[in-house]
Design a protein around this nucleic acid. Structure first.
Lengths: 192, 192
DNA sequence: GAAGCTACCGGAGGGGTCTCCGTTTATCAA
DNA sequence: TTGATAAACGGAGACCCCTCCGGTAGCTTC
């Protein structure tokens, strides 16, 4: 990220960063409700140090789930190529939901992304992934033209508000179906 | 609410409650980001007193916007009666969005309701309002059968994640259209 | 090896939500 | 009036996020 010759980062800084990430990875593995204070303490650094490395909770979590987020982003064009557009879209949605359910952090990142908007390193690529799927469908004529990927991302963010305790998976699938139906181009029938 | 003969509430308690509400109403008029600590101080009560009257931020806000929430709940059957189902639904959605935009608290309450679920006094009635609209559409055949009002409420909660700074109203309208389209019964054309 | 520069550390502290519990006081009965 | 009593008060304090800045200690240069 800064391999420039601007000045090599100090060793202790690097060590601390790694230690924080390791502790955070373990602490946030599944749970989520872990305080940064706790992570800092466990990592043996001051809270100030943690915050210098990761200016807010989200950026720490992004770092942890970088890999997974990227996977989702890469998956979209792959699906678009190997499946009919509607199927690709739906499958991608499922995958996003699945990741969010599985790895707490992915959900948090995506959710936060809809707030932060353009600041976030992954915001644009994520939108791009959605755009690929939407374009494929539009080209084929099964999805509406001119859909805004940001609108779709927002709609997806509903996923993280579903209470997993009560029919989480089923409800998620149902809602994703509703969303996809909303994106479809209506059959050009006669009626108004 | 407790007109029972269980024991009349103490006068000072009643007074404090009113004072807190008055201060809160003014403080939260439009803004939102007001601390309960500040409200307590302004009302001349300890923070503990505020919290005994309203066990959390949300319950205070519910009290403030009781009227507005009820209006929305009542509006649904009225619209269902006076308009074609699709129009009624869409118009009700708009009204919900409008209220949320106008009065910060309404949005917060509805949003929170999707989290709290059954604990909330207004959760069921709100779902009922949605159900009325969905049923009307189902009966007419323009909306899908068996839609779950809770699913729809969840979808609506997206409204409060829209950044008003960037195309808020327009985006909201667009997303509401998408949601409605997702709820419509597809034309029974030939295709798969 | 010593010294200087400055990146980096770390925790105090500000502001938030909410809980707990010793103290005050409104109300009622005597 | 004067207790007695329990409801209500109110703030200290636990825990959160995040900022700020005086102190510390790597790295470089001589």
């Amino acid at each position: 990220m800064n391999a420039q010759h601007s000045k090599p980062t100090r060793r202790d800084a690097l060590d601390n960063r790694e230690r924080i990430l390791a502790v955070a990875r373990e602490a946030l593995a599944e749970a989520g409700g872990v305080s940064l204070t706790a992570i800092a303490k466990k990592a043996g650094v001051g809270i100030g140090t943690l915050y210098r490395h990761f200016p807010n909770r989200e950026s720490l979590i992004i770092e942890l789930y970088r890999h997974d987020i990227q996977h989702l982003i890469d998956l979209a064009p792959a699906l678009a190529e190997s499946h009919p557009p509607l199927q690709a879209l739906r499958q991608w949605f499922d995958e996003v939901a699945r990741y969010g359910r599985l790895k707490y952090g992915v959900a948090e990142v995506i959710h936060a992304a809809t707030d932060r908007g353009l600041d976030d390193e992954y915001y644009e690529p994520f939108l791009g992934a959605i755009a690929v799927l939407l374009d494929a469908g539009a080209a084929e004529g099964t999805l509406k033209d001119g859909l805004d990927p940001e609108d779709v991302l927002l709609q997806l963010s509903v996923l993280w508000r579903i209470d997993p305790a009560r029919g989480g998976d089923v409800r998620a699938a149902r809602i994703l179906d509703l969303i996809v139906d909303g994106l479809r181009r209506p059959r050009s029938g006669p009626a108004a």
